[in-house]
């Protein structure tokens, strides 16, 4: 199914040149949630571009991720308002607690971490969202609670 998705996207761009690389990458990420090695290989073949180049271009932009999202996808806002309110500390704390760098996903696929420019919720700064749910005025303590909550949800589900 996954392959079919990529094929469909590429079909829509048939005859396209290298300038279609970014739109194709965006559509692939939209469809699959991330840019996988096999997606890059397919795009490489399709556009006749080296895979290293495609990966290089994709990593130039913050919008692309190269790991599937975890069950709990954390986004940390690094916009100006959040920055002023100490979002760097929040990010450092999250990196430490989740043992993840931005863009990474934990081995058990439970957590993933992403940094975004501004979520448009500056009144709530510093903001963190988990699977789209916003948490306002986040502190290290609060982060611990949020993570704890996620782990419990996971246990209940199993």
């Amino acid at each position: 199914m996954v392959t079919a998705d990529i094929d469909n996207i590429l079909n829509r761009h048939s005859g396209a040149g290298r300038d279609h690389l970014i739109p194709i990458l965006q559509e692939v990420q939209e469809a699959e949630g991330y840019i996988s090695p096999r997606a890059v290989a397919k795009i490489a073949e399709f556009l006749n571009l080296p895979a290293s180049k495609i990966y290089g271009v994709a990593t130039f932009y913050n919008q692309f991720r190269f790991h599937p999202k975890g069950r709990f996808h954390f986004m940390v806002c690094r916009g100006t308002a959040c920055h002023v309110k100490g979002s760097q500390k929040v990010l450092d704390e999250l990196t430490k607690q989740l043992k993840l760098e931005p863009g990474q996903t934990s081995r058990d696929r439970l957590f993933s971490l992403e940094v975004v420019a501004c979520m448009g919720a500056c009144g709530l700064a510093p903001v963190v969202s988990v699977n789209g749910e916003f948490y306002a005025k986040v502190t290290p303590r609060k982060l611990m609670e949020i993570i704890q909550e996620c782990r419990q949800k996971e246990v209940v589900d199993v």
Binding site: P37, P50, A51, S52, K53, G56, T59
Partner: peptide, 20 residues
């Protein structure tokens, strides 16, 4: 073309696709 620039700014480096 085994290698290219990966990432940008202070994180930029040279590597292979997916830094594999």
């Amino acid at each position: 073309a085994a290698i290219d620039f990966i990432g940008r700014g202070s994180r930029a480096k040279i590597g292979t696709a997916f830094d594999g």
